[in-house]
Design a binder for these strands. Structure first.
Lengths: 242, 242
DNA sequence: GGTTAAAAGTCTAAAGTCAGGCCATTGACT
DNA sequence: AGTCAATGGCCTGACTTTAGACTTTTAACC
């Protein structure tokens, strides 16, 4: 007999605490940001003190994380004035933990469902929001970047940036956070399956439609197309991964 | 000159790490679960070893958290076989940190936006999902609880449980987690404003419509009504709080 | 060329957290 | 009544993280 009748709501409410893994969490966040192209190769990361404050982590811990990224070849560091940590042209693969494939299935299902809620909702919300000129510029710029991409890796990064941009213009940190998580995971999975040129044309059209629907305030359309867009990726992931 | 041009996407991507607060995080989660009525007064919490494992926290840390809750009068503990930590009939107020009111404004705006994405999306998704008999029962039961509530506090708890139930039947842990966060925050804010009897009739009808739309698979309707439902709360919060 | 400022690198003491084992208590079962 | 098992209570040693001061390096600036 368990001590409490295990209501499903208890399961829904209690979540693992990201305990003392400040270090790992930093590695994940910075690693994701680099892989998603939020930090571009050649650009400089914020300095250690600033970054540490942003991540709400002590400088010592942040330095550990940077050390790990340096060891993995993601960044390199120079000292002295004008120095800092710069992002390397990444060719290397993520020294990922190679999860056993059976909880992958569940993780994919989880993230795919979550995404189908977050991203269409964000697109809808973004379209309903009165956007400032900078936000509109951000969206069109991300869309343009997507056209300029000339490699699968570039394309996927630009894609992630656009999706994140859409969430970020809604003005909710929690929403941005959720979208970051989604994009990081989706990117990670997508990186393991072959890149299909055939999908691009369709994707491009959807991206174009979504951004313009948002800019014109057509929330229903933005949501609808984003939903289709996410479904396409979901089918890809569920079909090609096992 | 900052070291990196601070792209808005960097802001969207980097989030404070909940590093050094395993203890606080436990208190928050358990405290929220109790206040939302996920753990009912008089019922027993899972035993320490089990709870610690669920929260991914050492028993020592969990015990600290329980200690804090006991000190605040939320629970009481007895030892020996058949013992455990039971939830008290809570009359006391949360010894909340009384945030300075100016970032409250921002926090409310944030959570209200996030909610308007999460909950309508969850309702839509739930309606699209093939629900098992237990899940259907959970929803109707939560709806019935709402009718049985005979105090504002009861009502708000039943409301939170219903919303959480809707998210949980979608089968995504991340979605449940997001909804927990939303409900905890909304509950916290709602507890500070007067309870308006006039709103209940409208709310009740919306709840009824949403649940039945979900059970019948009418996703569009579930989403639409949930959206209205959230907007009503949002207006309440933004109007009555400052 | 010398000065300076901005950055990474280093050190330390204190606090938090963990893993796991052992003890103490007490109701449940025989 | 006696035994047992489940539960909270407690302890120790190792590791992580923190906060902040201090050092070193090096390019930018005059």
């Amino acid at each position: 007999m368990t001590s409490t009748m295990d209501s499903p709501l208890v399961d829904a409410m209690l979540h693992p605490v990201r305990g003392h893994m400040a270090f790992e969490s930093c590695v994940e966040q910075l690693g994701s940001a680099i892989q998603l192209g939020i930090f571009r190769p050649g650009s400089k990361l914020p300095n250690e003190r600033e970054l540490a404050e942003r991540l709400n982590v002590s400088r010592a811990t942040l330095r550990e994380a940077i050390s790990a990224l340096r060891a993995a070849g993601f960044v390199s560091t120079t000292r002295g004035r004008g120095g800092g940590t710069i992002v390397e042209q990444l060719a290397g693969e993520w020294p990922g933990e190679a999860h056993p494939s059976h909880d992958r299935q569940a993780e994919i299902e989880d993230i795919v469902v979550f995404r189908s809620v977050i991203e269409p909702g964000a697109a809808y919300r973004a379209a309903k929001t009165a956007l400032g000129p900078e936000q509109r510029a951000l969206l069109t710029e991300c869309l343009a970047d997507l056209g300029k991409a000339n490699s699968p890796a570039d394309y996927r990064q630009a894609d992630a940036r656009l999706h994140l941009a859409i969430a970020s213009v809604c003005g909710s940190d929690e929403l941005s956070k959720a979208c970051s998580l989604v994009q990081a995971k989706v990117h990670q999975f997508l990186a393991e399956i072959p890149f299909l040129q055939a999908n691009i044309a369709n994707s491009d059209e959807q991206h174009y439609t979504i951004v313009h629907a948002i800019l014109e305030g057509d929330a229903e359309r933005a949501r609808f197309v984003m939903h289709e867009h996410c479904d396409a990726t979901a089918a890809l992931l569920k079909g090609l991964l096992k």
